[in-house]
């Protein structure tokens, strides 16, 4: 059990916070959920670091995939789900290709993002991406700069996607509605804006 101290100063309290890991910090359900959603044997990780070594995000950020797997093994749910680094995975799957214990670390991250979304913990840009997909069918919709570049290359101004065939957008919206992705994104962004 963490020891609480009160200095009447939130910054100082955060700085001096008890950072011990205690047995009751661990939620074994978290590991079980991650393994169930990610369909991978996260508990077999022996922390060799091949994943972080393979990761294109790691050298350019504080994202350490090995650390997220460690948190899964120890059941450190809050620590994993509230860490903004969780969203820096590019899902390139290099770590999954190379993991010597045949774990899929990428899928562990995806499972954690899933669990985080259930608790409304998602960065704004991801939510806005969800909104854009809903309205345009694209996470990054076409814009005038792209259109000019496409023309220069002898391509049509818009690609043959939902931009060219907007009649397919309702289909995409149906999928997103089923998972309440847009609804939740709107709600979270609205609550944040308050």
């Amino acid at each position: 059990m963490a020891i609480e101290k009160n200095y009447g100063n939130p910054q100082l309290e955060e700085k001096l916070r008890d950072r011990y890991f205690y047995t009751d910090d661990s939620n074994p359900e978290f590991l079980a959920n991650v393994e169930k959603i990610g369909r991978t044997i996260a508990h077999m990780c022996f922390q060799c670091g091949t994943c972080t070594g393979s990761c294109p995000s790691a050298p350019r950020s504080s994202y350490r995939i090995r650390l997220f797997v460690r948190r899964a093994v120890l059941g450190l749910e809050d620590e994993a789900l509230t860490d903004p680094d969780l969203w820096l995975c590019t899902t390139c799957y290099s770590c999954t290709d190379r993991c010597p214990r045949d774990i899929a670390p990428t899928d562990i991250i995806m499972a954690m993002r899933n669990l985080a979304f259930k608790r409304d913990i998602v960065p704004r840009n991801f939510l806005k991406t969800a909104q854009l997909i809903y309205t345009t069918g694209h996470g990054v919709p076409n814009n005038d700069v792209n259109r000019a570049a496409r023309e220069k290359l002898g391509l049509t101004r818009d690609p043959p996607t939902t931009h060219g065939y907007p009649e397919f957008i309702p289909g995409i919206q149906k999928i997103l509605d089923y998972y309440k992705l847009k609804e939740n994104a709107d709600r979270i962004l609205a609550e944040e804006g308050q």
């Binding site: 011990y20 047995t23 090995r66 460690r70 948190r71």
Partner: peptide, 13 residues
């Protein structure tokens, strides 16, 4: 210390 987590450990066993 869990050197992989870089956190001090206090486990009641």
């Amino acid at each position: 210390e869990d050197t992989l987590l870089q956190r001090p450990i206090n486990l009641e066993l």
